[in-house]
Simulated scan of single mutants.
Amino acid sequence: MLRFATAGSVDDGKSTLVGRLLHDSKSVLTDQLEAVTHASRDRGQDTPDLALLTDGLRAEREQGITIDVAYRYFATPRRRFILADTPGHVQYTRNMVTGASTADLAIVLVDARHGVVEQTLRHAAVAALLRVPHVVLAVNKMDLVGYGQREFDRIVADFAERAGGPRPPRFTPVPVSALLGDNVVERSAHMDWYRGPTLLDLLETVPVGAGAADAPVRFPVQYVIRHGDSRYYAGQLASGTLRVGDRVTVHPSGTTSEITAIDALGTPVAAAHAPQSVSVRLADQRDVARGDMLTSGVDVPALTQEVRGAVCHLTDRPLRVGDRVLVRHTTRTVKGIVQDLGGAAELTANDLGRIALRTSRPLALDAYAVSRCTGAFLLIDPADGATLTAGMVDL
């Protein structure tokens, strides 16, 4: 399974690219294509507007822009995909953060006529902030610049220079025409100077989830299951490998025990690997509850009430120093107070910034650079449960 997100400035052709990818990979049902064809004719177009395959909201179709994150599931003989088509407008940066937060790859689109613009750099910065492992720079609308290699090379060099920052992105550039299908699924007959893979070739072959099972063990407890006199602790293994007989530490209490049984889908197994969902039984009757975390080995998380990190504010309600919030980390939710916003008076919707929090109880934290699961947190409004802010831990 590959999870990937698209991003780009307004009218760079993201939705058309996604529609072309779905259409040419034979992932569009006949009735869907007929509906798009009919809607396109109503708008005076002779050919199907493939962007309509992802712009599903009425407001999007009427305005001709992407507003919400559109998720699509499709598969080829080589791999399954979850695709998040995210908006290009700066006021929807929070939507891109949502779509890219779990992505293994981000496709950043650039219009070949306009080159790298401010929003291109913003999307590259968000991808870097979220530690998306792979970035593809798709230089779109190559047909409108005569399929010229010089224009493509200029944009690639410009992106490499200007999108540097503290963590220069490693990216793979691909020249495409989403409208005509060049280098999306099929190789272009108009750009024989390009020897690299098509976009689909990249998506089908990029490595996914490398090293998750070899990382330090992190098992956030989601449910406590009582079965007779025994207790099983259920959840998703965020990273590492758990085996029967392993010694584990329970955080935040610091107590230790031994794993005596592991069940996966009701079947006893000798070992579990991330990201499996399993239940485990311990040798001792320990006080373990939802929100606790089991770890194994000497590489343990930082147990702290001081949380610092980068954030993206997601709601129209401003976040200010002194605000009392709920902090959700993995399966644990605790009270917290905002102590600092990196010198800013407040954060408003779509702002990227820094934060310092103090929580009422300790959290078992990893740096986001180490783990995108145990290094992430959310701030929630205690009054109505609304999600306020998404954060990435610095240690």
Rank of each mutant, 00 (worst) to 15 (best):
A310S: 03
R324H: 10
P318W: 02
A283V: 15
R320L: 14
A271T: 15
R324C: 05
G309P: 02
V327M: 02
G309W: 00
R308H: 14
T304H: 02
T267L: 11
D299H: 10
T256R: 11
A274N: 07
A271D: 09
R281F: 07
V288D: 05
E306D: 14
A264L: 13
S257N: 08
I259E: 04
R308A: 11
L303G: 05
M293R: 00
A302V: 12
A272I: 10
R286W: 04
R320D: 11
E306C: 03
T304L: 02
A274F: 08
T295W: 07
T255F: 04
S253I: 08
V280G: 07
V288S: 04
I262A: 05
G297M: 12
R324E: 11
V280P: 03
Q305P: 06
S296K: 05
L319V: 09
G254M: 06
T304D: 01
I262Q: 05
L326G: 01
D316V: 10
R281L: 07
T256E: 11
P301S: 12
S296Y: 03
L319Q: 02
T295M: 10
L314S: 01
D323H: 06
S257Y: 03
L314P: 01
P268R: 12
G254S: 08
D284V: 14
V327T: 01
D299F: 09
D284R: 15
D287M: 09
A310P: 00
A289R: 11
G322K: 06
P275N: 13
G309L: 01
D263H: 15
R281A: 12
P301D: 09
G309S: 07
T267Q: 13
A270P: 08
T255R: 14
P268L: 10
R324M: 04
A271R: 15
R286G: 06
D287A: 15
L265Q: 09
T255W: 04
V300G: 06
E258M: 12
G266P: 08
L319C: 04
R317A: 14
R281C: 07
C312Y: 01
D316A: 12
A283G: 10
V311C: 01
T304A: 02
H313T: 00
L282P: 03
D316M: 05
D299K: 15
M293T: 14
A270L: 08
T260R: 14
T267A: 13
V300I: 15
R320Q: 14
P318E: 04
T315P: 00
G266M: 11
R286F: 02
P301E: 08
T255A: 13
T267H: 09
H273Q: 15
G309H: 02
A274S: 11
R328I: 02
S296A: 14
V311Q: 01
